[in-house]
Design a protein around this nucleic acid. Structure first.
Lengths: 325, 325
DNA sequence: TTGAAAGCGCTAACAC
DNA sequence: GTGTTAGCGCTTTCAA
C-alpha cells in the first residue's frame, strides 16, 4: 500500500515524471488530454504527494507548530481547536509542542519545530521565560511567528491577545454596581503579561470608582492548591472582604475549592474571575465568570500566521498586535 | 539562520559530507579525533538534521498521528497529553487530526496522515464510522496503528480502552448500596463501543441486585442539549426515578443543566455518570462522577504504538487489547 | 579512515 | 507539449 510515487504513475501511464508533475500542479504547458488522463488516475489511486520531498525542494510543508505551556488546560485546548479550524481549511496541519512551563523546554521545542521545517510557529510563552533570544532570532530571520495570549514585551511579530484589561475592568465594574466594595485578588505571579493586565484592569476599575485597593489583598500563589487555600484563609481571617477576584483558570478553581473548604455553608464572599471551563455556570458556590474567547483567539492567530506564511514580500506581512474583544 | 546542512558543516571543517554523516550516526568507521571535532562543532551550532531528508531516505520520521473526533472535549485533550508525555521522551512528535465526528473526514485525515509519512497512527473512531476499510487496509499492510477508547469490533490491532463495563457496574453498585432503586440512563447512541459497554455494566449491575430496568428509562440523545432536556423532562413527568446515569462527558453536563432547569430547588434525583472534568466535584447539584484515566490511557496507547513502530519483526508486535483499570 | 557518487520523491530549468 | 536532468539534505554503498 506504500503510497505510489510520481515515478510509478509516470511508468504506468507511459509518460515522464515531469508531465505528471505538471498535471498535478495545474501547469498550462500540457495538453488537456494528458492532464485529464493523469488526474483521473491519481484520483483513482488516492495519490498524495510526499510532503517530505516537497519540503526538501524548498516548498512549504503545510504544517505549523503550536508551542504551548501545557495541554492540561482547557484554554489552550480551545485555542488549539481554533487554530486547527482555520489551518485545516487551508490544508495545513498542526504539530503540537509542550514546554511544561519551563524556559529550557521552550528553547528546545522551538528548535525542534524548526528542525521539522514547519512553515510557521504560533507560541504562547512559558511562565518561566524571561530571555527572548530564541524568538528574537526568528523574527530577525523573517521566520513566520505569531505570539498569542502570553506574549513578550517587545514588538516585531504579531501579538494576539484578548483584551485582558478591559475584561477585568468590566467584570469588576459589574461587581461594584451590584454593591460589592472590598475586593481581594488571588493571582498567579504577575510576570506574565496577561495576568498583570488583568490585575491592572481590576485595580484601575476600583480606583475609578473612588474605592481603595489595599495592596495586602493581592495574594500571589503558584500552581499548588495549598497556596490558594492559605491565601484565602488569610484573607478571611484578617480582612473583611466582600469578593475575591481570580485571574486565571486554575487559580479560580483552587480558590473555589478553598472557599468550599473554609466556609462550606455561608457564602458571604463572592468570587469572580477568569475561567474557560464549559461548566462554569454549574459550579457551586456560583462564580461570576469571565470567559476568554479562546477558540476565536486561536482562529485569528492562525489567520495572521498563515497570511504571513503565504505572503512572500516581507513588507506585506502583518505585524501589528490584535486585541480580541 | 536557516539551519545549517551537513554540507555546510563539511565545508567548514574541511571534510566530506559522508564523514560528517558518519560522525553523527556514531559509525565506528571513523577516527575518534575527526568524530569529536565534528560533534563538538555540530553541538556548538545546534545542528538538527533535516527530518524531511531523513524521511525521504526511508528513515523514520519520528512523528505519530493522533486522530480524534474533536479537541473540544477534555477527555481527548487529556489522552493527547498522555500520548505526548511518552512520545516526547522517545523523541517523537505528535501531529493531531480531527475528524469532527464524521466518517468522511476520518478517511481523509487517515490518508493525510499517511501522506505525511507518520510512523504510526493512534486513532479514536468517529461517531459515524461503520465502514472500517480504511483502517483494515493499514492493518493488512502492517502499518503501525493503535485504537483507543472508541475502537472497532474486530481484532488485529491493539485496542486500548478503559474498563467501561466495570466502571459503570461499580458505580451503579455504589448507588444501590446507598439505597437508590429506580434508575434511568440518559445516553448518547449505543453504536459506540464505550457507551454500549457502560450501558451493559449499568444494566448488569441492576439485574445482579435483583432489581428491574425498564427499557423505557433508557433515553438516547444526540449532542444537542435540548434533547437531554426533553429526555429528563419526560423521565421526571412519567416515571418515579431516584437516579439518572449518564454515560459520557457532554451528556452528563447537559443532563445536569436540565435538572437545574427543571427542578432548581429540590434535588430529589441524584445524577451519577462519566465525566472527565477537573471540576466535577464542584458542580451543583452534586454528581457522583466516574473519571476515566484519560492521561494514562494515552500513555499506554503511546507505549504500545511506539513499541510496534520500533519493532521490525512483525511477529513481535503487540496486538492484544488492553483494558485499563 | 575517508571521499565520491547514487538515490529517496519531487519540481523547474532547459532541451527537443 | 513533452522529456531530460539537476538538485533539495541526507545515508550508504563502493572506491581509494
Amino acid at each position: 500500500m506504500q503510497n505510489k510515487t510520481i515515478k510509478d504513475i509516470a511508468k504506468t501511464l507511459g509518460v515522464s515524471t515531469s508531465t505528471v508533475s505538471r498535471a498535478l500542479s495545474d501547469n498550462k504547458e500540457i495538453s488537456l488530454k494528458t492532464k485529464q488522463k493523469i488526474l483521473a488516475y491519481t484520483k483513482a489511486i488516492n495519490y498524495i504527494p510526499n510532503p517530505m520531498a516537497l519540503s526538501l525542494r524548498g516548498k512549504i510543508n503545510k504544517s505549523i507548530a503550536i508551542v504551548v505551556p501545557t495541554l492540561h488546560n482547557s484554554f489552550f485546548s480551545d485555542v488549539i481547536a481554533g487554530i486547527d479550524s482555520i489551518a485545516h481549511k487551508k490544508g495545513y496541519h498542526i504539530i503540537i509542542f509542550q514546554t511544561q512551563e519551563t524556559y529550557n523546554r521552550e528553547v528546545e521545542e522551538v528548535l525542534q519545530a524548526l528542525g521539522r521545517r514547519v512553515d510557521g510557529i504560533a507560541i504562547s510563552l512559558s511562565g518561566q521565560t524571561d530571555n527572548f533570544d530564541h524568538v528574537i532570532k526568528l523574527i530577525d530571520d523573517k521566520f513566520p511567528i505569531v505570539f498569542f495570549d502570553r506574549v513578550p514585551t517587545f514588538e516585531g511579530a504579531p501579538r494576539i491577545t484578548v483584551d485582558n484589561f478591559r475584561l477585568a475592568y468590566e467584570c469588576t465594574q459589574q461587581m461594584i454596581d451590584r454593591g460589592f466594595k472590598k475586593f481581594a485578588h488571588v493571582a498567579t505571579p504577575l510576570n506574565l503579561n496577561n495576568i498583570r493586565e488583568r490585575h491592572e484592569g481590576f485595580v484601575q476599575c476600583i480606583k475609578d470608582n473612588h474605592l481603595q485597593f489595599d495592596k495586602r489583598l493581592l495574594k500571589i500563589c503558584n500552581y499548588d492548591p495549598l497556596q490558594a487555600h492559605n491565601a484565602v484563609k488569610c484573607l478571611i481571617e484578617n480582612f473583611k472582604i466582600d469578593a475575591i477576584f481570580t485571574s486565571s483558570d486554575k487559580i479560580t478553581i483552587d480558590t473555589c475549592r478553598a472557599l468550599n473548604d473554609l466556609m462550606p455553608n455561608d457564602h458571604i464572599i463572592t468570587q469572580f474571575g477568569f475561567t474557560n471551563l464549559s461548566t462554569a455556570d454549574l459550579i457551586s458556590p456560583p462564580i461570576i465568570s469571565i470567559k476568554q474567547p479562546a477558540f476565536e483567539l486561536g482562529a485569528i492567530t492562525a489567520e495572521v500566521l498563515l497570511h504571513n506564511i503565504e505572503t512572500t514580500e516581507y513588507e506585506n506581512w502583518k505585524t501589528e498586535d490584535i486585541k480580541i474583544n
